[in-house]
Amino acid sequence: MAMNGTITTWFKDKGFGFIKDENGDNRYFHVIKVANPDLIKKDAAVTFEPTTNNKGLSAYAVKVVPL
């Protein structure tokens, strides 16, 4: 089920960042999981599918909501 969130941290040079989800949890995401990576920036609103990996909470099918 899709969730909403906000990008809180973005490491462009490393290709990953973190999203604060609607429950207040931080989720890892990688640029290859983003549909529109050219719009990635700190504080951008996103929708995504929540999941977990071996390191904890993460996100896939991430879409940055255009302003």
Rank of each mutant, 00 (worst) to 15 (best):
F18Y: 09
Y28S: 05
D13M: 10
F48P: 00
A44E: 05
R27W: 10
G5S: 01
F29T: 01
I19R: 00
T52D: 07
K63G: 04
I7F: 01
V31S: 07
N54T: 12
D25A: 08
N26F: 15
E49L: 15
G24I: 01
K20I: 09
T52N: 10
H30Q: 09
V64A: 03
N53I: 07
D43C: 15
D43S: 10
A35N: 08
M1Y: 11
K63Q: 11
A61N: 15
V34W: 03
W10I: 04
D21P: 01
N23W: 08
N53K: 07
I32W: 12
E22M: 08
F48M: 02
I19D: 00
Y28F: 13
F48N: 01
T9N: 12
G56V: 07
V65S: 08
A35H: 12
A61R: 11
D38S: 11
D13V: 09
P50H: 03
A44R: 09
E22C: 11
D43Y: 14
V64M: 04
N26P: 05
T9Y: 13
F18I: 09
F48R: 01
T9H: 15
E49I: 15
S58C: 11
V65A: 07
G24W: 03
P66G: 12
N36D: 06
D25K: 08
K55M: 12
A61Q: 10
T47R: 09
A44T: 05
G17P: 00
R27L: 04
V65Q: 10
N23M: 10
E49A: 12
D13R: 09
D21K: 00
A61E: 10
Y60F: 12
V64P: 03
N36L: 05
V31M: 09
V46Q: 01
H30C: 10
A45D: 08
A35I: 15
K12R: 09
A35L: 15
T47Y: 06
D38R: 11
K41Q: 11
N4M: 12
P66Y: 10
I7L: 02
L39G: 06
N54V: 12
M3T: 05
N36R: 06
F16A: 03
M3Y: 06
T51N: 09
I19E: 00
F18C: 07
K41C: 11
A35C: 15
K41T: 10
N54A: 14
G56L: 08
G56W: 09
I32K: 15
G15T: 03
G24Y: 03
I32Y: 14
V62D: 02
G56P: 04
T9W: 13
T8D: 07
N26E: 11
K41H: 11
H30F: 08
T8F: 07
T9L: 14
A35W: 12
I32R: 15
G15Y: 05
E22I: 07
D21N: 00
F16K: 01
K42C: 10
K12Y: 08
T9K: 14
N26T: 14
Y28I: 07
P37A: 07
K63Y: 13
D43T: 07
G17M: 02
I40G: 01
K20V: 09
H30G: 06
W10G: 01
D38T: 11
F11P: 02
G56Y: 09
M1N: 13
D13G: 08
I40N: 01
P37I: 05
N54Y: 10
K14C: 10
L57V: 03
G56K: 08
L67C: 13
D13A: 11
I19P: 00
P50G: 05
L57D: 04
D25R: 08
L67I: 12
F16S: 03
G15E: 05
I40F: 05
G15W: 05
P37C: 06
D25W: 06
V34Y: 03
L67V: 13
A61G: 13
S58L: 09
P66K: 11
V46Y: 02
K41M: 10
K55L: 12
K20R: 13
S58N: 05
T52Q: 13
H30I: 08
Y60N: 15
T52C: 14
V62N: 01
M1T: 15
A2D: 08
L39F: 11
A45Y: 12
A35S: 12
A59I: 03
F18L: 05
N26S: 13
K20Y: 10
M3D: 02
G24P: 01
G17S: 00
W10N: 01
N54R: 14
K12E: 11
I19G: 00
M1I: 13
K55P: 03
E49C: 15
F11T: 03
I32A: 15
D43H: 14
N23P: 00
G15R: 07
F16I: 05
T51H: 14
K41Y: 08
L67F: 13
V31Q: 09
G17W: 02
G17V: 02
W10H: 02
K42F: 06
N26R: 13
T6S: 06
I32V: 12
T52K: 13
V62Y: 01
G15S: 07
D25Y: 08
A61W: 09
K42Y: 06
G17E: 01
F16W: 11
V64R: 00
F11E: 05
F48H: 00
T8G: 05
T6Y: 12
K33L: 13
T8H: 09
K63R: 11
A35V: 15
G5P: 00
T47H: 07
T52L: 09
D25M: 09
K63M: 12
P50M: 04
V46T: 02
A59Q: 02
V64F: 04
A45P: 11
R27P: 00
K20E: 07
T52Y: 12
K33C: 15
V64K: 00
D13L: 10
N54E: 13
A61P: 02
V62P: 01
V31F: 09
T51D: 10
G24R: 03
A59L: 04
N4F: 11
F29A: 00
A61D: 14
E49N: 14
D43A: 09
V65W: 11
M3Q: 05
F48S: 00
T51C: 14
K20D: 04
N36S: 05
K55S: 08
F11C: 09
V31I: 12
N36H: 06
I40M: 05
K41L: 07
K20S: 07
V34F: 04
E49M: 15
N23H: 11
L57W: 03
P37G: 04
E22V: 07
G24M: 04
V62K: 00
A61M: 11
I19Q: 00
K55Q: 10
A2C: 13
G56Q: 07
A59G: 04
K42D: 04
G15P: 01
R27M: 02
K63I: 13
N36T: 07
K42P: 08
R27G: 00
K55A: 08
Y60P: 02
A59T: 06
V46I: 05
P66A: 13
L39Q: 13
G15V: 03
N4E: 08
I40R: 01
T51G: 11
A35Y: 13
K33E: 15
R27Y: 11
T6D: 03
K20F: 11
P37L: 05
Y28R: 03
A45M: 12
I40S: 01
K33I: 12
F18W: 10
G17T: 01
K41S: 09
S58M: 10
P50E: 03
